[in-house]
Simulated assay, not measured.
Amino acid sequence: MRISLPPAGLLIFLPPVLFVAACVSDSGAPPTDVTVAAERSKAAPNFEPPTAEAPAYYAFRSIGGVELGAIYAGEQIPPRDEVEPLVEKALAGRHYLKAGKGTPPPSLVIAYAWGSINAEDGDRRTRERMLSLVTTNKMNLEEGSVDLARNPPNLDDGRYFLVVAAFDRAELKAGRKKMLWRSKLSTGSAGTTLTEMLPSFLNAGADFFGQDGLPAVLDGKLKEGVVTIGDAEVVPDKAKSGQAEDRRPPAVPKNASQPGPTED
Rank of each mutant, 00 (worst) to 15 (best):
V109L: 09
L133N: 10
A204N: 05
L162K: 03
T192A: 13
R169Y: 12
D123C: 05
S183F: 01
Y96C: 01
D207I: 07
L91T: 05
F209D: 04
S186C: 15
F209R: 01
G115C: 07
D123K: 10
S107Y: 06
E82S: 10
R159A: 14
M130F: 08
G144C: 12
D212A: 09
L155H: 12
G93F: 08
D157C: 02
T103N: 13
G158S: 06
E128N: 01
K178A: 11
A190W: 07
L97P: 08
I117F: 06
L194D: 08
K177P: 11
R125C: 00
L194T: 07
P153I: 14
S116V: 11
Y112E: 03
E75Q: 06
L214W: 04
D168F: 02
L180E: 02
H95I: 05
E84I: 11
L162V: 08
S132A: 01
K178W: 05
R124W: 12
G158D: 07
R94C: 02
M179L: 15
S200L: 09
L133K: 04
A206Y: 02
L91F: 14
A99Y: 07
R80Q: 15
W114I: 06
V109T: 14
V134D: 06
P105N: 10
T193D: 12
A170C: 09
R127E: 03
E88D: 12
L148N: 13
A165M: 06
L97C: 07
G122R: 12
S107H: 11
A113N: 05
E128D: 01
N140M: 08
A92I: 09
T135Y: 04
A149Q: 10
Q76R: 05
D212H: 11
G144L: 09
N151S: 09
N137P: 02
F209H: 02
L86D: 11
E75D: 08
P78E: 00
D121F: 04
K173W: 11
E84V: 13
N203A: 10
R129V: 00
R94F: 09
P215S: 04
L162E: 10
L91R: 02
R124F: 11
N118I: 04
E82P: 00
L131K: 05
A113S: 15
N118E: 09
K89A: 15
T103L: 12
L141M: 13
T195K: 12
A99C: 08
V134E: 11
T126E: 01
A174L: 15
F208G: 00
M130N: 09
R94P: 00
E88K: 14
R125F: 03
L86Q: 15
S145F: 10
A149V: 01
D121I: 03
F167P: 03
A170V: 14
V134G: 04
P79I: 00
F209A: 01
T135P: 01
V164I: 13
S186K: 03
R182I: 04
Q76H: 02
L162S: 09
T192G: 14
L148S: 06
I77H: 02
E128W: 00
L185E: 06
L194P: 03
A166Y: 02
K177S: 14
H95M: 14
K184F: 06
D121M: 03
G144Q: 08
T126G: 03
E196F: 09
G210S: 04
E88H: 08
A119C: 05
R80V: 14
D123F: 11
W181G: 00
V87D: 01
D121N: 04
R125Y: 02
S189Q: 14
N151R: 09
E171G: 14
E120D: 09
D81A: 12
E196L: 13
